[in-house]
């Protein structure tokens, strides 16, 4: 009896110290994790001379000497400055790359989702010979690395004139995203209660009507989860763009542009940091506004190739 009453407060105190330690460790880890991004963000707003001659952390350690400017962003986005006109040698061209990336990423998100939703409905609710083996094929393709298709597809693209076109990149992203999309949407659509279909069938509705009028609206949460996933994947992709879109600046996406900036302006950190931040803005907005959908998509989509 005595021993337990003595032990209890000690244990509670130890628990409390442990508890504080957990907070301290977590704060340290979190600070460690966001420091790189903060360094980038701070540097992107510092004048070129400052970025070259002092560490970005001096903004915190020596705040009275800190200067900030939007000029880096103006240069990167192609807005001429009095002392730096936009010429072919100084052109950074992030504004062009941004529009190109949108042009690639939006259809490369919507097209596979549409096609996959149709297929998921077909696999889930229409009985046809070969249904199971064909779906097993989809599951098998989940982890196939996209590297496998580079040589043959590039050959096809040369033959078909699809190389360097947006259509070619959309189709490639569609092909590589489809297995996961079909699989995820199948898992969702196959759990929709059968009653919903039955009354519609009795009213004489076709599969097409049921799909477009009933299933698509009902599947919105699943479609949204995958859409975010696929959008971020296509936005951040480098390999597919390099291989199928080519190096012509007119069509380059932000990741390609950033890669060539690393070569071209390797030491101009004020341009590299602002350029990198511009490439990150859209994903970050998507992340912070739609985080819940994104996490749900990740959970459902583990083990993808």
């Amino acid at each position: 009896m005595t021993s337990t009453t003595l032990a209890a407060p000690r244990q509670r105190r130890r628990f409390r110290i442990g508890h504080i330690m957990v907070y301290v460790v977590m704060i340290l880890i979190t600070v460690l994790w966001i420091t790189p991004t903060i360094g980038l963000l701070v540097s992107s707003f510092r004048p070129a001379d400052d970025v070259k001659t002092s560490g970005w952390w001096t903004v915190v350690t020596n705040p009275e000497n800190a200067r900030f400017t939007l000029n880096n962003y103006r240069i990167v986005l192609g807005i001429p400055l009095p002392d730096r006109p936009v010429t072919s040698g100084t052109r950074v061209g992030m504004e062009v790359a941004l529009i190109n990336t949108l042009t690639v990423a939006l259809p490369a998100t919507i097209i596979p989702i549409l096609i996959a939703a149709f297929a998921a409905y077909g696999f889930a609710w229409i009985d046809f010979p070969g249904r199971r083996p064909l779906f097993i094929l989809v599951v098998a393709m989940l982890v196939v690395p996209l590297q496998i298709s580079l040589v043959p597809i590039l050959r096809d693209y040369v033959a078909l004139g699809l190389g360097g076109t947006y259509l070619g990149v959309w189709l490639a992203h569609t092909g590589f995203g489809l297995p996961l999309a079909v699989y995820l949407l199948y898992n969702y659509i196959s759990t929709i209660p059968r009653d919903i279909f039955e009354s519609a069938f009795l009213d004489g509705a076709t599969h097409f009507t049921i799909f477009t009028r009933l299933i698509l609206p009902l599947s919105m949460p699943a479609l949204a989860s995958f859409a975010i996933f696929q959008f971020l994947w296509t936005w951040n992709d480098l390999l597919v763009a390099l291989v199928f879109l080519g190096a012509e600046p007119r069509v380059q996406v932000v990741t390609q542009r950033l890669l060539s900036l690393l070569g071209q302006f390797g030491q101009e950190w004020h341009l590299l940091t602002s350029g990198a931040f511009i490439s990150m803005i859209v994903p970050l907005i998507v992340f912070f506004s739609l985080q819940r959908f994104f996490v749900r998509g990740l959970m459902a989509g583990s083990v993808k190739g």
Binding site: W33, P36, L232, W235, M280, L284, F294
Partner: peptide, 12 residues
């Protein structure tokens, strides 16, 4: 905050 880098591209 720890999850955030997940949405940054490899190049970024």
């Amino acid at each position: 905050l720890i999850f955030m880098p997940m949405v940054i591209s490899g190049v970024g």
